[in-house]
Design a protein around this nucleic acid. Sequence first.
DNA 1: ACCTGAACACCGTTCAAGT
DNA 2: ACCTGAACACCGTTCAAGT
Lengths: 227, 227
Amino acid sequence: MASRTRGAERRREPLSRERIVAAAVELLDTVGESGLTFRALAERLATGPGAIYWHIAGRSELLVAATDAVLTAAAVGDEPDATPHETVRALALGLFDAIDEHPWVGAQLVGTPSQSPMLPIFEQLGRQVRALGVPQGAWFSAVSALWNYILGVAGQNAANARIPQPATDRTAYVGSVADHWAALDADRYVFTRTVADQLREHDDRAEFLTGIDLILTGITAHRWPAG
Amino acid sequence: MASRTRGAERRREPLSRERIVAAAVELLDTVGESGLTFRALAERLATGPGAIYWHIAGRSELLVAATDAVLTAAAVGDEPDATPHETVRALALGLFDAIDEHPWVGAQLVGTPSQSPMLPIFEQLGRQVRALGVPQGAWFSAVSALWNYILGVAGQNAANARIPQPATDRTAYVGSVADHWAALDADRYVFTRTVADQLREHDDRAEFLTGIDLILTGITAHRWPAG
DNA sequence: ACCTGAACACCGTTCAAGT
DNA sequence: ACCTGAACACCGTTCAAGT
């Protein structure tokens, strides 16, 4: 009875950009990027595919809007007492977790020019680079390195999420790759074989942070040309 | 006259995996990933779309095969006298140039689990990490950082290539983003504004190498746990 | 064994027609 | 102003039928 009322209310609720984007995020989370279809979306919103076009220009605008919504929700506030190093870690981790929860965002970020939703994060990263004492002439190079690394991990995570069947255990998948590595030719792939167990037992999040630390160490230790 | 003969010969040449893959690479280079269509491919090969399926399982296998072909052609040989640092640079640059020439490869690499075509490169990178004196327990972490960075740049390059119209000057596009940055709000985007000119004048290739250097510096300077 | 091309089951997007 | 849903112009993939 309550559900009948709710159903009726939902059908009458007018469409809006927000409702469409929220439904799109839900669809992307549950069935992946290839499952985001105007027909599926229209069905969920109890309308026809054409109605959506009144509010959103097309599929790629919808994808950008969905990414924007997720990133806005994941934005990190400034901790006034944090060191630059800590702030970079917090920013990067915020992105990492958002992408971990919504893997399709990773693919979206990699495929998007450094535009709207990522600009604030770029800015915040940049300020930390400045605070680390990098000479001004090298600011762009230093942020770029961090940026490319973060987007690289984002892309990998997105790819990992869409390879096996939606529900397959990530652990099982990593395990099968590790088995493959361990079984490689002993001469041509000494290194990869040796590292197979480290792949099996690694923690994505910790590994990600190690990479951030490496780049920060590099940024600090690098002999930048005076600028 | 010669062209008539050649045309006739081409039509009679039997299909083969190699011819299909070569045609696919050509199509991807000229019209991008969305232009690689079984119908367009079939037309180029003077046959029907169904014929292709006799030799290749489907679109994604075709994409993998095309990527494989490009990477194999771009493989770098071992320079016996090179330092680990130099070898890493050469490997990374080989990938960078291959992706620069065939931007769709970037998207493909990011979307692919560390499987077949990239394994030899992963192995070679790993050997250099070993040669740098990284303790064995940290090998995986160190290569992963390099790997994620390289794939991040790959993805960015692929994205940049598919944003503007195929033939638009890359310089003009970068310039327009730089203009956008320079016009941002002075309070909220101090850093990004300051860096707009560095974006405008930067060289992708040099920037890429700087990032590699930073990570290598980090790998060398990092206080790894003994292992 | 290999090729053909019509047919199937989808897409995103548009647009006349409705309210 | 906003919604509807049929229609258009595509896709990847399959498959009976040919050679």
